[in-house]
């Protein structure tokens, strides 16, 4: 899965104190470890188990995911616009990989 691609949707500008919606999606099979292939062998679990969102290096939201999260996980949540800067998003894979995306915001 070297070609994992994440998508994020963040408003580029917001008024200070305004509540903004953040939408994220990442292409990932979220292999649950509960499926078998044709030969009857269990396909090993490989999911994204943690998602974090930081603003200017400080974590502002985190989520733990389990095997019931659908493939190609979609997540939306809210933040109160506090300061201009960069949002960094990170998806943590069972295999140790961390997939990243970022988005700028200008708060006035």
């Amino acid at each position: 899965m070297a070609d994992i691609k994440a998508r994020v949707k963040v408003p580029s500008t917001a008024a200070k104190g305004e509540i903004i919606e953040i939408k994220t999606m990442i292409a990932h099979d979220m292999e649950s470890g509960q499926r078998k292939d044709k030969s009857g062998k269990v396909i090993p679990r490989q999911i994204i188990n943690k998602f974090t969102c930081s603003l200017n290096g400080k974590e502002v939201f985190r989520s733990d995911w389990y095997t019931a999260v659908s493939a190609n996980p979609y997540l939306s949540f809210f933040l109160r616009a506090s300061e201009s800067g960069t949002f960094d998003f990170a998806w943590h894979d069972d295999n140790g990989s961390i997939y990243k995306a970022s988005a700028p915001i200008t708060v006035s």
Partner: peptide, 30 residues
Amino acid sequence: IAEENPFPQVATFYLSPANGKAEVTMRMRL
């Protein structure tokens, strides 16, 4: 929590005043 899934926990979301609004949307397997 999905009571009768093989593993009941679906997801946990950690929030703080930084969120402003406590609402999350996601998709799960049942």
